[in-house]
Design a protein around this nucleic acid. Structure first.
Lengths: 332, 332
DNA sequence: TTGTACGCGTTATCAA
DNA sequence: TTGATAACGCGTACAA
């Protein structure tokens, strides 16, 4: 990656390095227009492209934001990423993306720290037991002046956050379904080690208890479409396909719900004729899905935007709380 | 972003900067183990994190790859991104992501060039008329030693590419449907300015011509779910819902097909009872969709992986060609 | 093997 | 306003 340097431009324009810097890469001091024009011309003809690395070193700020997600191909995360990306752009920052499916979040954060990103946004679902080394790394990052924003829960001291009210979402959704006359429930859950999954399940249980009910079954599988699919196979194995009739399946998120509905279909059961299914998130591609999925909407892109704003604004890091909105469709 | 520097570590360990550098950030020269241990200890207690910017400046290589996509929330692009991300990781590179929905690709490439990414992967669909400034920027980037890989078409001289055989896909798919006895066709297309959309349409037409048939209608709308939805509304407005019965709708990609099916449902038409629909790509979330969508599969994650391999391997840039695989499901 | 010193490309301070 | 020049943090010939 050789390239034209600023001093080459300066020489060509017959000015000093400092002057060239001032006209090409903003400064408060404004060189004379005639000089400026000469520099711009030289830069243009030479094909000068400022070296962001060198600028970062000199300015001690990189114009980089790091985003760590669990799986960028999951619509939940890609929607958030889209929001983050958009705002990063308006804040004139570039997006460094790390996916951690199967991998350590620690590696991603270390890499971001090494690259001196101005901020790190953690969108990967927090796990109940946080790796202490990850915590230490993030704290050191903050001490060095880096900003951190967590999405989902507010689990890092001194960091900003966009918290998602999963517990209320779980209990509101379930409460609504109880009021709609449903009495038999099952929960298709992700690993409870995942806070998001655990909180939604807790809300679900609370609502049932309040109504004097109890879940007939609860499963624990992957937090993705595959997990939803397996959950249903699990259920079928336990109580048989016929045993599922009349049941209301609350899945820990939309992709699980879609996977579940697919599995039900393969088992010869139809939603909402034979049983009901609901999810969480209201991911974008739901619109094209039939039956329409009853869910709790979280404005994912907006959440990403807010996280980026908190990360990149000069203000003190704040915590923004997001509550879900019940979306009743045909599936439940 | 203040942080512990290498010289602080060196001083603490009582060694020279050079020695510290050698033990902490790989080198062929191997300091004595006793010394090395002292340096490592100092680094550990001080909380040293190498400054990637400074290293980049000194090594003149950044360990960054740039990926430009059109819309990261689109499953087509997010699948590719997942593949690129995975391989970037194995090549020990960080991923710089830019989305260009509504925006200029030129901005993204310029930013990547400024950040001296070792390579740039262009996944955004090429437009028929390429902005000459974009071309110039990419060519300069290549002259400076940057590697470029395009996905879709091979449109940049000297660059690597993963080409996608859209034309054959269009004609093979259509040919298969003709053989299945379909005689009445419509194409739900994206703007022909998009090469991908145009090529698929061309293949579609060629197959029909070969069979002595012709499309009854062709539409031009957005290359996304919304566009598919509107295409159907468009069709309904032209020929009425009843007029669509018996038609086979070939959409320019899967998300358009899904949008179309949703619109058909809203118009009271059912697939595959009343008419048929097919798409392209075989995006991952299709599995949960009913009816199963007939499509042409392109291994998106794998395409992303290949692109990253070409970009990051030391070998001369090569062009890899990908042909689709027909996937017959219930929808057509 | 270890250390010295220069270069990487910019910004910013301080004189002129 | 313009121009030297010292950082910025690190890698690496070169010398010791």
């Amino acid at each position: 990656m050789s390239a034209v340097t600023l001093s080459q431009v300066a020489r060509q324009a017959g000015v000093s390095l400092a002057t060239a810097s001032r006209v090409l890469n903003g400064s408060d001091r404004r060189p004379a227009e005639e000089i400026a024009e000469r520099v711009r011309l030289a830069a243009e003809t030479l094909g000068y492209v400022a070296n962001a690395q060198a600028q970062a070193l000199a300015r001690s700020t990189t114009g980089l934001v790091g985003l760590v997600v669990h799986d960028i191909a999951d619509p939940y995360f890609s929607s958030i990423a889209k929001g983050v990306q958009r705002r990063a752009r308006t804040h004139r920052h570039q997006l460094l993306l790390a996916a951690t499916s199967g991998t350590d979040q620690l590696d991603a954060v270390s890499a971001f720290a090494a690259h001196r990103t101005d901020a790190i946004i953690m969108a990967g679902s927090r796990r109940e037991s946080i790796d202490p080394r990850l915590l230490a790394e993030l704290e050191r990052y903050q001490r060095n002046g880096g900003r951190v924003v967590t999405i989902g829960q507010d689990w890092l001291e001194g960091a900003g956050a966009v918290t998602i009210d999963n517990r209320s979402a779980g209990s509101d959704l379930t409460g609504m379904l109880v009021e709609a006359g449903r009495t038999r429930f099952a929960f298709l859950g992700g690993p409870d080690d995942l806070t998001t999954a655990a909180e939604r399940r807790a809300g679900f249980r609370a609502a049932l208890t309040r109504a004097g009910l109890a879940a007939e079954v609860e499963t624990v599988h992957g937090f993705d479409s595959e997990g939803g699919y397996e959950s249903v196979r699990d259920l079928v194995a336990r109580v048989g396909a016929e045993g599922l009739r009349g049941l209301t399946l609350v899945a820990a998120n939309d992709v699980m719900a879609l996977g579940a509905i697919a599995a039900l279909r393969h088992a010869g059961l139809h939603v909402p004729e034979d049983l009901w299914v609901a999810g969480f998130d209201d991911i974008p591609n739901l619109r094209d899905f039939a039956p329409g999925l009853t869910t709790v909407r979280f404005p994912l892109e907006e959440i990403g935007e807010t996280a980026a704003d908190i990360a990149l604004s000069g203000d003190a890091p704040r915590v923004e709380h997001v509550v879900g909105e019940l979306v009743r469709r045909e599936s439940a």
